[in-house]
Design a binder for these strands. Structure first.
Length: 415
DNA sequence: TCTGGGGTCCTAGGACCC
DNA sequence: TCTGGGGTCCTAGGACCC
């Protein structure tokens, strides 16, 4: 039996590609996409990169560049990106039944039983994504996920000569590739680890490939051991087609303007809890506890964790917890810049044996109706009163493109 | 003046129990 | 002067990813 081959498919500058989909006039114009709150650049085209704009560069630092080079700037539009991402994965699923979405713009695929014709198959896949979705992608092939990432790195770097597909199933090719790659470019090796590895003379990906994995496991962690083995072609990371249920669910935002009133904080936290609960019910889980946290302007962090008497997915239980929690951590006179909610201790809702003596009110039908209506008619068509109407905390988002594919009112008009 | 948000996994250390 | 050992659970913090 032949071994499995992994492919990593990712869309080049995904957010920018999405913004260009319905704006052909931007095809040859520089584009930058900003983070939530329009705080910093999080995606950009090659040209903007060449001007020195990097991921994380604050918006205010590049304002002159934007003006000078007539760069089109967008607030991020996650509704659009999420929808295009789903279409992308659907196209991938036409080429293999083993698709594992890894992030909004990249997915791992698994191919069994392919040999020589796999490269041609991937080139057809690439052409199809281009024809059907107008998205530019690159594909890396290898016997492990970590090596597929390496292959993808080269496919992206040498798109012209490789036609966006690089195959590292061959060991000699792998050595060539790893010798020329910095260890910091390996998936799972960040800034800190790069520095520490350097002290041990490990500079290139090939150095790490040859290092003693037992020693490095003791020095760092089992993740480092896995990375080394994966670089040697031994799969250590699992491949799962079904998205695994989240173990924690978080929603938070910086405020558009600083907040000092407790009532505004409550509204913001109620909003975050509502979003968390939607995600919770979507993955059919119940949460055992809720944590709220506030950040002050001076960067100080206040948090509190409140357990429930039994796991729940009823929004009103979370809102009650927020009411009591925020009173405990709020300090009059503080200036707050960010708030958020995390749900912990998630358990599957199916088969959960609820305590017959518990007085927690579970109203699955009510929550169901709420989700159905809001899904059909838009977020917060029906909502709890504690979410309020003022939204004094709402984030800045001054240049968002229309939700072309997910809101009827924003669909493109041809006249 | 203005620097995002949502996740995962691992480890160390403290509390507690027997 | 001596001052156990092992297990579990929880939390905080660090590191990584996109």
């Amino acid at each position: 039996m032949s071994k499995s081959t992994y492919a990593l498919c990712d869309v080049n500058s995904f957010y920018v590609a999405c913004e260009r989909l319905f704006r052909p006039d931007l095809q040859n114009k520089p584009v930058v996409v900003l983070s939530n709150n329009d705080g910093c650049a999080i995606a950009m085209c090659e040209y903007s990169k060449s001007l020195g704009i990097k991921i994380g560069t604050p918006h205010f630092q590049i304002k002159t560049l934007i003006k000078k080079h007539d760069i089109e700037c967008f607030s991020s539009n996650y509704g659009l990106y999420g929808d295009i991402s789903q279409r992308f994965n659907w196209v991938l699923s036409q080429f293999t039944d083993k698709v594992s979405p890894y992030s909004v713009d990249e997915s791992f695929l698994k191919f069994d039983g392919f040999t020589d014709n796999l490269i041609q198959h991937c080139k057809r896949l690439r052409k199809t994504v281009d024809e059907w979705l107008s998205l530019p992608i690159c594909i890396g092939l290898a016997p492990t996920k970590t090596l597929a990432k390496v292959a993808n790195y080269y496919a992206k770097k040498h798109q012209g000569s490789t036609q966006g597909v690089v195959d590292l199933r061959n060991e000699q090719h792998r050595e060539w590739a790893l010798r020329r790659m910095q260890v910091s470019d390996i998936w799972g090796v960040g800034r800190r680890l790069t520095q520490k590895l350097k002290l041990h003379g490990i500079i290139t990906a090939w150095d790490l490939h040859n290092a003693d994995y037992k020693t490095l496991q003791r020095m760092f962690s089992v993740n480092m051991e896995r990375t080394i083995l994966e670089l040697r072609g031994q799969p250590c990371l699992t491949f799962s087609e079904l998205p695994q249920p989240k173990q924690s669910i978080l929603n938070s935002r910086s405020f558009g303007n600083p907040i000092t009133e407790q009532s505004d904080l409550k509204e913001a936290l109620a909003y975050h809890a509502t979003r968390c609960c939607e995600k919770l019910r979507k993955q059919s889980s119940l949460a055992s506890s809720i944590q709220l946290f506030l950040y002050t302007r001076d960067g100080y962090h206040h948090g509190i964790t409140l357990p429930f008497s039994e796991p729940t997915d009823d929004t009103s239980c979370f809102l009650k917890a927020i009411n009591s929690g925020v009173q405990k951590i709020y300090k009059a006179g503080e200036v707050y810049k960010k708030a958020g909610v995390v749900l912990f201790g998630l358990v599957p809702s199916s088969g959960y044996q609820s305590d017959i003596f518990s007085n927690t009110s579970q109203r699955p039908e009510l929550m169901d109706s709420l989700d159905t209506i809001n899904k059909k008619y838009g977020q917060d068509t029906i909502k709890f009163g504690s979410l309020g109407f003022a939204k004094r905390w709402a984030m800045r988002c001054n240049a968002q493109s229309p939700h072309y594919t997910t809101r009827w009112s924003e669909i493109i008009k041809v006249s």
